[in-house]
Structures are given as structure tokens and as C-alpha cells.
Design a binder for these strands. Sequence first.
DNA 1: TTATAAAACTAACAAGTGTTAGTTTTTTTT
DNA 2: AAAAAAAACTAACACTTGTTAGTTTTATAA
Lengths: 190, 190
Amino acid sequence: MKTETRKEEIIRVAAKLFKQKGYSAVTMRDIAKAMGIKAASLYNHINSKQDILNEIIISLAEAFTQEMKQIQSSGVNSIDKLKKIIELHVNISSQNIYGMASLNNDWMHLKDKLQYYLKLRNTYEDDFKTILIDGITKNEIINIKPEVMMFSILTTLRSLYIWIPKKEQLNLEALTDDLINVLINGIAKE
Amino acid sequence: MKTETRKEEIIRVAAKLFKQKGYSAVTMRDIAKAMGIKAASLYNHINSKQDILNEIIISLAEAFTQEMKQIQSSGVNSIDKLKKIIELHVNISSQNIYGMASLNNDWMHLKDKLQYYLKLRNTYEDDFKTILIDGITKNEIINIKPEVMMFSILTTLRSLYIWIPKKEQLNLEALTDDLINVLINGIAKE
DNA sequence: TTATAAAACTAACAAGTGTTAGTTTTTTTT
DNA sequence: AAAAAAAACTAACACTTGTTAGTTTTATAA
């Protein structure tokens, strides 16, 4: 376990504050105070406030994209691919609760990286939809508009960062199992 | 259809901007410019930027609370209550897309009204959970942790404001039906 | 038409913003 | 112990923020 650099520490502390109040409402002085230093000192480690946001969001977006490509080429059936996607979101979200908040709420404050982020997101959603359409074709998934299914599942998964901290004793495996049940099998007794 | 007051117009325009950039990133000068007046002129109609946010969020939160009480006392079974909740969210969200964005993303910037808002939200979630527990008891709903079920359904419903605008031809009834299917019956073919 | 109310305006404020320059302190390397 | 590098500091900048005071214009009522 390699030790955290000062820059990584700044990004981690900033992400925590961004989750609480959003990127725009957090000042460089807030971040500095949370680290016990003065705002100007931050600039020995980072280039700008904007760069902090870039690093938080882009690294996460790239992680999702990369894993989706793995799932895509895994060769399992569509339901199992969806299960892998659920696991992916639980894993990343539980490891980076604060970053996920920025990814969800502050992506629109990206500037240089905005187009790149949108490209990654669109690719991810297209891949997701392709899995659903494939499942419908192969009769593994009910024939409902794939957009609505994707919206429902993806929205739930993207909001995990809100709910995971609330679960006192965080059993990730149990959470994953429950989510698979709820999202794929529904909640009604047949 | 009674005509909109200037104050209502400010709140409507502000909500639209809040959806795009978040409360903190929108300035009074932004709002004024979108209305074709100067920032100082806004204060002939509203007391503060804070008050704009208060009105947007609290009116929506109260609408949800009120309707939930209706559903609670409607006497139908738990699955039908869930269907009514889905309809409720589709209706309010489609009628106030911009306000729903503030409700979801900017509630933490409430000040005086923050405690009141949290009380309304907690009550709503408690009522929701009670319906689920009741459904489990009566064997209408599968026996999974009600928190996970509520999280999944409620998160999807709360995010409708993101997706509704994307649906080119907005058939609300069809959307409601699809959501009922996906959220209650799941997506897998049995 | 004249008086009244409503709604816009200009100008400015005090406080807060991200960031830079230059300097001092602390830590690491030789 | 001396030199070099890293990381903190103070002070300030140019700009933006929400808001107020006072005034002028526009619309309504008498």
C-alpha cells in the first residue's frame, strides 16, 4: 500500500467537500482549511481548482469505461453481463464515495474535459443499451423500451454513493445480491 | 389559466438555470439577464436568492408529502400503492422538471428551511418503507430488505427529471406503464 | 389628467473569489 | 553540516458576489 501523495490528499479532501456542498460552493480556502494549511499553499501541488475536479471525474469515468469493455467481451449472457455491471458499480462506488458524488453532480462544471467526459458517458450508455437489446433479442430480457430499463437500472447504480454510507454494517456482497434481485427480478411475488 | 406573476416568472427562470449549473453557480445577474432586466430589479419581487431556492424546493416537497398521505389512506393493496407513487412522481416531475433538479441537487443549500425539508423527506421515506413492509407481511412483495427496494425505486423516480426531457415524444402514460413494469416486475423473463 | 403604485434603473457597498509573487520554513539528499 | 528541494507562509491582485439606497420610468386608478 503506497502512501498517499500530498496532491492525492488534496483531491481526496476536496472530493469530500464537493460531495457535501457541490463544486461551486466549495472554495479553495475551504479545502485548505480542511487540510490545515493556507489556500495559497495548495498551488504547490495542484494547478487550479478546475484541475482537481478534472482528476476526480475523469479517472472515475475512465475506470467505468474500461471495465465496461471487459464486460462486453466476457462472452457471458446478457443477464450475467448486467450482474457484472451491478458489481462494478458497487465496487467503484464503495471505494470512492466522494468522487462518485462529483461525477454525478458536478460534471457540468468541467471545461476542457467536458467533451471528453460526455464521449465516455455516451459510449458507456450505448454499450449498456446494446447489452439490453441483445438480451431482448435472445429472449432473456422482457421486451420493454431498453431506454427505460437502462434509465431505471443505471440511475439506481449511479446513486449508490448516496445510500452506501447509510448502511451501518456495510456488507457489499449482500448489497450486490439484493440489488441483483431487485433490479433484475423485480419486487413483486409472481 | 391564471397568468404568471413576475415573482413566479423569476422562480421559474431561476429553476431552469439552477438545473443547468446548480444553485451556487448561478448568480443573481445570471437570473436577471435571462429575464432581460438588471439584478437589482429582481429585489422588487423577491427577498433574496435564498428565498428563490426555498420556494422551489419546499413547494415541491410539500406536494409530495401531501400526495403520499392520500396514497397511504387509499385502502388499496401495497402493489397498487406503489403504482400510485410511480404515477405521482411521473406527474410532478413532468410538470416541474427544473424544480425537481433543485430538489434533488440543491436541498443542502437550504438554511432556515433545511430542517423542515429534512423532516418532510424523512416522513416521505418512512411512509414509503411502511408500504413495502406491509406488502412483505401480506406476501405481496418479495422478502428483501425494504431499504434496498426503496432505494432502488425512489432513486429511479427522483431522477425522472433527467430523463423525461430526453424522450422526444413524451407519452407520459406509456412511460408510467413501462416504469411500473420495470420497477415492480423486473426485467428478466421468468 | 393627476395621483399612486409597480417595476425598472444607476451606482455602489462590503465581503468573498481563484490565483500569483515573493519569502520563509521544513524536509530530504549529498 | 551544507546544499537542494519541497512545502508552507504573507500579502496582495483583479474580479465577482448578493444586496442596498436612491432615483427614474412605466403602468394603473381616481
